[in-house]
Design a protein around this nucleic acid. Structure first.
Lengths: 225, 225
DNA sequence: CGCTGAATTGACGGACATCAAGATGTGTGG
DNA sequence: CCACACATCTTGATGTCCGTCAATTCAGCG
């Protein structure tokens, strides 16, 4: 049984730890024309069981979605980075909650208007569908991760974040160890230990705790079985 | 690290262990009009990386989809029962393999024709999308399972199978312990031990190894945190 | 019956959770 | 600019769940 992973939801320290990088937009599949909104770190964007009124697209910062298990454990189901859309649901309510990982800008658009437009714009409908399928693939991939060893999970996570970021030799992690742990189904301690293990084996280096350098990407890929 | 879970793919014993129950069809969202096909136990319906030419709907029997990890482990991603559709992909190829769990009848329809029709039938397109979203929810639910304890996983599995079956006090499991283990991210031994544990606590009873009676559904639900 | 695959049971070890303490870093107030 | 407070991260010691290895029982079918 995992630890409670209770989150101190204090929205203090709402300064971005990293200068908010400007978005590589517009490249979103829907070219959302909604209103841009700002969310401070840890602010809730929507909550589980709330009506799914809007669709969202990250402009800057990062967003996590998660579900709580009734014993207090938290499963982070996804991280969304600039350009990513989220909040798409089948039913009328959200099945997960969404929060800003760091101070973030998010484009918000009325779901009903998108759905209405999709009704007579085949392209838009198809984009919505493609988006959903891509999300499906992401979740499937993620569920494959959850049956691996701690080292494999962390390695896979780093590669995933790298491929979604600049793709270079250094990855900036906007989220805390707790977020990573809850995403990977591990504890913070195990995540931390695995990081140091990777450092000691010369696979990565930590510039800061949230800034990782790849030293041996081949080794990482090998772990990413 | 899990055991290899290598599957002896011998299609021997191709007799259905249970008289093939007739399908509760038609209730499929697409009202598939394709050809009915028969697959013997363990027969491959499609393989990973094959072109996704068809869509499928289970008429009788049961189907499993799975992905192999390169170390030989197998992750069963879903079980499909009569009425369920499967094989929907975004891209042009299947991302998982599908096999008959027991002797099965499956309705097969050309993907291209469905997609073509969906192009000018809004309803059909919407049904396809809804189907995908439902699948997404299923996978999300499943990934929540993978962070729980063995007992919770098995309890959840039994409840899931019950709700998808008759819903009564007795569940017929068409799949082997190995299938269940690979679905839940456990080993056959752990699955088996958990079953006996549940028996000893008076929560369930085994009529046969694949026929389970609920003796204390509340206890199961409690485990299904 | 005897063969064969499926399921169960037991003994043991290892990976990761838990519990606890320290180290580091960052914003706030003097 | 320093010091305190608090969060985050790391590190260590210990326990436990579940995987591994191995043997036995059980069920279906020739």
């Amino acid at each position: 049984m995992l630890a409670a992973a209770a989150i101190a939801k204090s929205p203090m320290h709402s300064r971005p730890s990293v200068p908010v990088r400007s978005a590589p937009l517009p490249e979103g599949p829907l070219a959302l024309m909604g209103a841009p909104m700002r969310f401070v770190r840890n602010a809730e964007i929507y909550g589980e069981d709330e009506p799914a009124e809007f669709l969202y697209q990250v402009v800057s910062g990062a967003v996590r979605t998660y579900r709580m298990l009734d014993d207090g454990r938290r499963q982070v189901t996804a991280f969304y980075l600039p350009g990513d859309m989220f909040g798409v649901e089948a039913g009328e309510v959200h099945l997960s909650s969404a929060e800003a990982v760091s101070d973030s800008q998010v484009l918000v658009v009325k779901r009903s208007s998108v759905l209405a437009r999709a009704d007579h714009e085949k392209d838009l409908a198809k984009q919505l569908w493609t988006l959903t399928v891509r999300e499906l693939q992401r979740v499937q991939q993620h569920s494959l991760v959850l049956i691996k060893s701690a080292e494999e999970r962390v390695a896979g996570f780093l590669l995933e974040m790298a491929s979604r970021g600049s793709g270079g030799l250094t990855v900036e992690l906007p989220m805390s160890r707790q977020d990573i742990a809850d995403y990977l189904g591990l504890t913070i301690e195990t995540v931390s230990r695995t990081f140091t293990q990777l450092v000691q084996s010369g696979t990565i280096a930590l510039e800061t705790s949230r800034r990782i350098q790849f030293r041996n990407r081949a080794a990482l890929s090998r772990l990413n079985a």
